[in-house]
Design a binder for these strands. Sequence first.
DNA 1: CGTATCCGATACACGAATGTATTCGATACA
DNA 2: TGTATCGAATACATTCGTGTATCGGATACG
Lengths: 221, 221
Amino acid sequence: MSTDVDVSPPAADSERRRRTRERLMDAAFEVFAEVGVHTASVEAICERAGFSRGAFYSNFESKEELFFALSDREVDKTLARATDIAREVFPTSAPNGEDVAEVVRTMIQFVRGEANWHRIVAEYRLLAMRNGDIATRYLDFTRRLNERVGDMLETITLGAGLRFVGDIRLISRTLIALSSAITEEQMLVGEGATGAESTGDSLDFDAIVAYVHLVTEPAED
Amino acid sequence: MSTDVDVSPPAADSERRRRTRERLMDAAFEVFAEVGVHTASVEAICERAGFSRGAFYSNFESKEELFFALSDREVDKTLARATDIAREVFPTSAPNGEDVAEVVRTMIQFVRGEANWHRIVAEYRLLAMRNGDIATRYLDFTRRLNERVGDMLETITLGAGLRFVGDIRLISRTLIALSSAITEEQMLVGEGATGAESTGDSLDFDAIVAYVHLVTEPAED
DNA sequence: CGTATCCGATACACGAATGTATTCGATACA
DNA sequence: TGTATCGAATACATTCGTGTATCGGATACG
């Protein structure tokens, strides 16, 4: 009995293990987006990832734990991508007034491109409505997103010789709310094959640009 | 064999039957709001209603059918109540400019009072994101709601000697989107016991009033 | 090479929910 | 009062998902 009785927690962060977890999260992202978190069975996730349930339970305690790990990963990815896009749209040159509309357009197209992520966020929010812990996590996510967007807007408008009338955080929240509403509606219109009558009275890009114009004014040097 | 072989569908709309269906829908509304449509078992709904599953399957084909019946019922109820409230706020006298803010406040408080219905709508929307038929139903609901709110706004502002700058339907959609965002956020803040840091940068009533002021102007006779 | 350890696969036991088939009681009607 | 019908209760078979306990193969390391 010379050695300590090393019954320590499996220690456990091998490269192999890390990649298994990644693959499981990738699969979960797809399956969650397709059928929803509740409907998705652990079995289905494993099948998609090419693993058995044994692998799953060796890496995660439950579907919920996986969901949170996945959420954290995707939140970071999303924020990072948003930042990248902001940099891309404004390489170095200062934007002008026209660019603000272009930026809004880019932002919305970005959101729309993340339809699957949008579905998962919608479910995230729904879970948060019934569970305080999840609500805290979700609010933290939205807070971070809001700050990021707020910073972007500030940079953009300053560069464009504009300034926002009122609290920029409030404005960025409003913009996010409107973008989300647009994205959701367009996803829904895409789902339901409602032909003609859906055109016309829907929120769209122009509504946001109009809003931006309403809340900006020339900066006084 | 003189009589026709009357194997016709159970015919079936007795008063007793109707009331059973109502009680089941009442129970379902509660249970859906509490734990969500997916999580709610037929068993749980029946228990809440004081019936057995036999009664359920005698009245509905599935939980989904119940959900749709319930949705239709609640949509009608909600629209009716919204109309009532509008009438209550403007008995006969024409509102003035100040009243517009009051109306917005009333509207938001109304929405907030319907927290359970809001949870169910959020889930409705989520289901719609993955199913075309549900999407069609959901869009029809939102379209009706939008029209109703648009009419209310038009009446209100005309009476107040104001008019909206731009398409009123677009504006009412925007208002609805903002109200919903506010309601959701406040529900979430209520859930997560996130003490101090949640104050400050959230969308609130003032944001909507500000928006309303932005999009209205005195009517030119 | 041999051996120990890690990690994913397999097998199993259990619980939960569904839907149906049948029974039982109440109500309507002659 | 007797009888037929309607509607809810009960009992049952089945499916599906979960979680655990055990097994087996690969890899690292002496």
